[in-house]
């Protein structure tokens, strides 16, 4: 077997800009997903059943349908309703609604794992429900959830490869294009895998460092 990576001499910039786009997609997906996810988690813990139901329905629907189908629906299907997103926008929306659903469950579990006495102590001082959540429960929950959040970051980076199907020039799309243009079946994909691995491995090391820092505090 002969592997020929000489194409990289001419095409490494394509991978670099593709990696940058993957990073942007993942960054916004995770950031917006985390914010929405906290919202859905709080909704699931609400005392009002309609609110709880809406959040549960959202989470089940998003988790229970393939992201590839969601991507096509968002990008092509919604044009029926006059919603015509640019590919990059569709990509971020798809990644966001998915990470929100999974993050919501991570946050819910994290919040529920905090001893009830913490909330009671906060409430007994006169803090409102929201303040108790913000100052007492969430900071503690966040520390415990860091490994799970890191996991979700990594999943999002990898899942972002799916949005190549709507023509976003991220890593996977770039690899597929080079495959076709250069008649190289394997090498561009191996490079893509390598770039993804560098991104996820770096992130996992950074999160590990952050976790250690928080533990030592």
């Amino acid at each position: 077997m002969n592997l020929d990576f000489s194409f990289l001499a001419d095409h490494w910039q394509s991978y670099a800009s593709a990696a940058w786009i993957t990073l942007q997609l993942s960054f916004f997906g995770v950031l917006l997903g985390t914010i929405l996810g906290i919202g859905f988690a709080l909704m699931r813990l609400s005392g009002i059943w309609v609110v709880r139901f809406l959040a549960t329905a959202y989470i089940e629907l998003v988790r229970g349908t393939p992201m590839l189908v969601q991507i096509f629906i968002i990008h092509y299907g919604l044009t029926q309703f006059g919603l015509d997103f640019a590919p990059f926008q569709s990509g971020i929306i798809a990644l966001t609604i998915n990470s929100a659903a999974y993050m919501a469950e991570v946050f819910r579990a994290g919040i529920m794992a905090i001893d009830k006495g913490q909330t009671e102590a906060a409430r007994s001082l006169g803090l409102s429900k929201g303040m108790a959540m913000r100052y007492i429960v969430l900071p503690q929950a966040f520390r415990n959830m860091l490994p799970a959040i890191g996991n979700e970051f990594i999943i999002i980076i990898k899942d972002s490869s799916l949005v190549s199907v709507i023509g976003i020039a991220e890593i996977m799309y770039t690899a597929r294009t080079l495959q076709g243009n250069l008649f190289l079946p394997l090498e561009p994909l191996l490079v893509a895998a390598g770039v993804y691995f560098i991104l996820t491995f770096t992130l996992s090391k950074l999160l590990g460092a952050l976790e250690r820092k928080l533990r030592n505090q």
Binding site: D115, G117, Q118, A121
Partner: peptide, 8 residues
């Protein structure tokens, strides 16, 4: 409280 419930 019995279990103190200090904020750790």
């Amino acid at each position: 409280f019995q279990h103190f419930n200090l904020f750790p």
